[in-house]
Design a protein around this nucleic acid. Structure first.
Length: 939
RNA sequence: GCCGAAGUGGCGGAAUUGGUAGACGCGCUGGAUUCAAAAUCCAGUGGUAGCAAUACCGUGUGGGUUCGAUUCCCACCUUCGGUACCA
């Protein structure tokens, strides 16, 4: 009987579905384990072999935990809102929901084929109204919350209103907009409803703001910082410009410190933690206020410039100030004489795209405002410049420039011939700035003279506080996140605008607010987002339902928000929703989350480091503050699977003639490498020339110059992508070798976290392993196992268990191969050995394991059988083949009892005939004996 | 520039606390089987020299610590990922 993987795999996949083998309940006497793979965006291209890598690893671990007696939650779903379906809708008019549905179906087929132990009854789709109802619900909770810095957590907005009514906002320490005015209780109480709402927006955790946003004209939408790579959009690579727009924002900055602190409590990869740390960008320093010296302009009040600096100790070295060109004071302080120069400069920078600005970092530019600020201590006038090296959205958008201590300030000063006072003792600054904090003392700095960096910093902050012109401050690079997108295929905001134009929330009971139908998926002619095309998109606040736009009267019927939520909204809570996915009354029940708590193992790509994984942590902490989630970190352990890269193939076309050379023949010739589809190449890099000619008709007339009668292609490792013709999808491999072979092979390729090239050639190795495994069971019987059999089995149990616990799946595949090779050599037929072996293999190759289990006479799935117990007694050795080395070089082996004493080992080695040979008459200086390990003779 | 990861045979990789470098698999070479091929099985396979026993070299490079270093320390080189005028 041959190993008929097609029949076996189909049989067990049907069995698992029919018997709901992997359906999991929310209550159990067993301990819980939550294993989660990041859910995919269902793209039209389907899965390629790189996608399942993390899923397979996670599935192995989930199945292992099931064997170990855990109640395992292992769900899967789809992040099904997103740009590609919408772009397709724009091109073809097909509703994104239809495209999405088709793609999901294809994904599901591909996933089912691979034998995952997902509980599909818990599937979620972010674009399903029953799901996004709860995304909208979280938005409402954020809208109705503020961040109290005193208690360091989010609180209901009502508690803030109560404070305002009693004592105004002077005593409130909250995360709020910078321009929040100070008011008394009496003032608050006399505010109009609109004024109150405007003030509250400055405190809400999601709020409307006129923000400088990254506008992408080609995509017709704004993008978040993490959606922009190298100044162009992550998707499509379109240019991005800066634009002021009214947008929904998320006050993630309120959580900056806690997002940083939380990293210490979770077992996530250090590189991922590092990139979150850098993204949050905490820096410690001081804020200082510089008064602008009045110049007698009649429209000029008293202005002051606030700066943030990490080097307050260098304040006496400040010889100028630089404002960002966008800084609001620029227009107010510029002198008439300098106005035209400043205007021209501001105009020029606003036109430069972010990309241009980044492309030439080297060019120094700026302009003088004509105004001066007063140094807080020396009272000396300091010229105020503007320059685009100062960023409007970092710190205060203004810099106290200390050219002797900061290279950019130094370059700017040199370029514009500004004074560079030296405040470092014994340091030469004639060539460059001195940024070292440690190896100098402060000089020429009044009360700071002779102090080190640390003392000077402390002292200057004290002095700034005394004169009321500054204090110690911690600054973060992290910005509040733009939460509006001018797209159709996303979650609608549960928001309408009242007669005052203030946002009003649709009550929870009326959710979900479902996406309206539109004729076109493009922005409207007036530049409004695609929802502006909907004719039925107004809110009747009495009937609490969506009605036609023409009924808008701003009394009972109001316009609805036209923006939709960004891609990361739906993925920021999905892991909790899996715990209770069909709950219509709540995001999840208290019992469900009390039972499952959090994710024990989360596997996914590192590209989500500063997007999904940061936003999710933010929402989780918020829900924790509001008592909705029991843990303030959602995933205890996270693993980034590496990328599987493609092995591209190249043919080499002569530039001048219509000749294509085999790889070894290109030396000295001027050739163009051309991608060849990898499906046309065999395992020894030989090209099927005829098939290639059919595939590239333009080269069908070309002469192919062969080596040894073969055309050999060149190979190169590149990212797997359609355009490089190096994509390998799992379907063909499942067809040729089966899912179990694919699963084993993906694991066998190398360590999970590392990126590695895909090369189909090696799959025959794991496939023949499965065939050998299968053969072992052909004559399975009840014979007594031999000591060798038992030793092989228990050695394997030990290693495989250790490997799974360490996520070292590649080495356990090797271990299985060694085990099967040994048992085959031992002619083992014993059920007492082969039974446990089938269980060991089952997390990796579940289909064949089920079949073998059945062959051995068991009924029911192997998935719930206990993992074999390691019995150390079978592994006990009485002797050891000691490697005997001379000066660190192993020369021969000597079999000695393991319980032999050190001195006896040494004596046995010295007495050995080979020892005399290697010593060659010398007397050893020393003999190192490590019992159980090694003997080293020195001398 | 800064942060991070990684450099081991022809290839993917192994060596879990400093103790036999190259497990396992691919590929390759030779052989068995076959009319032939596929499949399967057996043997060999880091490099150099040698018929061989064996010797020397060998984990990116150069130093160091150690009886002993792929593993620890210092300096450097290369590749990949992230980030970028962050005050």
């Amino acid at each position: 009987m041959n190993y008929n993987f097609r029949q076996i795999e189909a049989k067990w996949q049907q069995y698992w579905t029919k018997n709901q083998t992997f359906k999991v309940e929310n209550d159990s006497d067993k301990p819980k384990f939550y294993a989660l793979s990041m859910f995919p965006y269902p793209s039209g291209a389907g899965l390629h072999v790189g996608h399942p890598l993390g899923y397979i690893a996670c599935d192995i671990y989930a199945r292992y935990k099931r064997h170990k007696g855990y109640n395992v939650l292992h769900p899967m779903g789809y992040d099904s809102f997103g740009l590609p379906a919408e772009q397709y809708a724009i091109q073809t008019g097909q509703h994104p929901a239809i495209t999405t549905e088709t793609n999901i179906k294809r994904y599901r087929e591909q996933l089912d084929q691979l034998g995952f132990s997902f509980d599909w009854s818990r599937e979620v789709r972010t674009s399903n109204p029953r799901y996004y109802k709860w995304t909208q619900w979280v938005f409402i909770q954020l809208f109705n919350s503020w961040y109290n810095n005193q208690t360091d957590k989010a609180e209901p907005i009502e508690s803030l209103i109560a404070i305002f009514e009693k004592e105004g906002n002077r005593s409130v320490n909250a995360s709020c907009d910078d321009d929040t005015p100070v008011f008394l209780a009496s003032e608050w109480n006399s505010f109009s409803e609109k004024q109150k709402q405007q003030v509250l927006l400055k405190y809400r955790l999601t709020y409307l703001a006129d923000a400088e946003v990254n506008w992408c004209p080609a995509l017709g939408t704004v993008l978040a910082n993490d959606e922009i790579v190298n100044g162009v959009s992550e998707r499509g690579g379109h240019p991005v410009i800066r634009k002021k727009m009214t947008q929904w924002m998320m006050r993630i900055t309120a959580y900056a410190q806690r997002l940083l602190d939380g990293l210490d409590t979770i077992d996530w990869p250090q590189p991922l933690k590092d990139s979150q740390t850098n993204w949050i960008g905490r820096s410690e320093g001081a804020s200082a206020t510089f008064k602008v010296i009045p110049t007698g302009r009649n429209d000029e009040g008293s202005h002051q410039i606030e700066v943030f600096t990490t080097r307050p100790d260098t304040i006496f070295g400040a010889s100028f100030m630089t404002l960002a060109p966008e800084h609001e004071l620029v227009a107010k302080i510029t002198t008439p004489a300098q106005k035209s120069e400043i205007d021209a400069y501001v105009e020029a920078t606003s036109k430069r795209s972010e990309r241009e600005r980044m492309a030439d970092v080297k060019t120094i530019s700026g302009a003088f405002t004509g105004a001066y600020a007063e140094h807080p201590f020396t009272k000396a006038p300091i010229p105020i410049w503007i320059g685009d090296y100062v960023l409007a959205n970092y710190g205060t958008g203004a810099v106290m420039a200390v050219p002797c201590g900061d290279q950019r300030d130094y370059d700017f000063a040199k370029h514009f011939d500004i004074d560079i006072p030296n405040i470092f003792d014994g340091v030469d600054i004639s060539e460059e700035a001195f940024a070292d904090k440690v190896n100098t003392l402060i000089a020429n700095s009044d009360f700071l003279n002779g102090l080190r960096h640390k003392e000077a910093t402390r002292k200057v902050i004290d002095e700034l506080e005394k004169i009321g012109q500054g204090q110690g401050k911690i600054n973060y690079r992290l910005r509040d996140a733009v939460f509006s997108r001018q797209r159709y295929w996303g979650e609608p905001f549960p928001v309408y605008y009242d007669a005052d134009g203030m946002p009003q929330i649709i009550a929870e009971g009326h959710l979900p607010l479902e996406l309206p139908e539109v004729e076109k998926y493009l922005p409207t002619e007036t530049g409004e987002p695609p929802l502006g095309n909907a004719t039925h998109w107004a809110w009747n606040a009495e009937a609490n339902k969506v009605v036609a736009n023409e009924l808008i009267d701003h009394k009972t019927v109001f316009p609805l928000e036209l923006n939709t939520m960004p891609g990361w909204a739906g993925s920021s809570q999905y892991f909790n929703r899996y715990m209770d996915p069909h709950n219509a009354a709540a995001i999840y029940s208290q019992e469900a989350i009390d039972y499952w708590q959090d994710v024990d193992l989360y596997i996914g790509g590192s590209e989500h480091a500063t997007g999904h994984l940061l936003y999710s942590r933010f929402w989780q902490k918020f829900l924790f503050d509001r008592g909705v989630a029991p843990k303030d970190e959602f995933a205890k352990k996270l693993i980034n699977q590496g990328m599987i890269t493609g092995t591209s193939a190249f043919v080499y076309k002569d530039v001048a003639q219509n000749k294509v050379y085999s790889k070894a023949l290109i030396n000295g010739k001027h050739v163009n490498p051309i991608h060849a589809d990898v499906s046309l190449i065999d395992s020894s890099d030989e090209l099927d020339v005829e098939a290639f000619k059919k595939w590239r008709p333009d080269l069908s007339k070309a002469e192919f110059i062969l080596e040894n009668g073969k055309y050999i292609v060149g190979r190169e490792i590149e990212k797997m992508s359609k355009s490089k013709y190096n994509v390998v999808n799992p379907d063909q491999i499942c067809e040729d070798y089966g899912a179990d072979s694919l699963r084993l092979y993906e694991m066998f390729l190398g360590p999970l976290e590392q990126s590695k090239p895909w090369n189909t050639a090696g799959i025959t190795g794991v496939h023949s392993f499965l065939k050998k495994l299968w053969k072992l069971y052909l004559a399975v019987d009840d014979s007594e196992p031999t000591p060798d059999n038992l030793k092989t089995l228990h050695k394997t149990i030990k290693k495989v268990e250790e490997d799974i616990e360490h996520f070292s799946f590649n080495t356990s595949v090797s271990t299985f191969m060694i085990c099967v090779n040994e048992l085959t050599a031992q002619k083992c037929t014993s059920k007492a050995i082969l039974g446990p072996l089938a269980i060991l293999v089952s997390p990796y190759a579940p289909h064949i394991a089920e079949e073998l289990w059945e062959i051995m006479g068991h009924t029911g799935s192997i998935a719930n059988v206990s993992f074999p117990q390691l019995e150390g007694k079978y592994l006990v050795e009485s002797t050891k083949a000691y490697p005997i080395s001379f000066n660190g070089k192993m020369r021969f082996k000597l079999e000695l009892p393991l319980d032999m004493a050190k001195a006896d080992i040494e004596a046995a080695v010295m007495a050995h005939e080979q020892t005399a040979k290697y010593l060659d008459g010398r007397t050893p200086k020393k003999v190192i004996v490590v019992p159980g390990k090694i003997v080293n003779v020195v001398g």
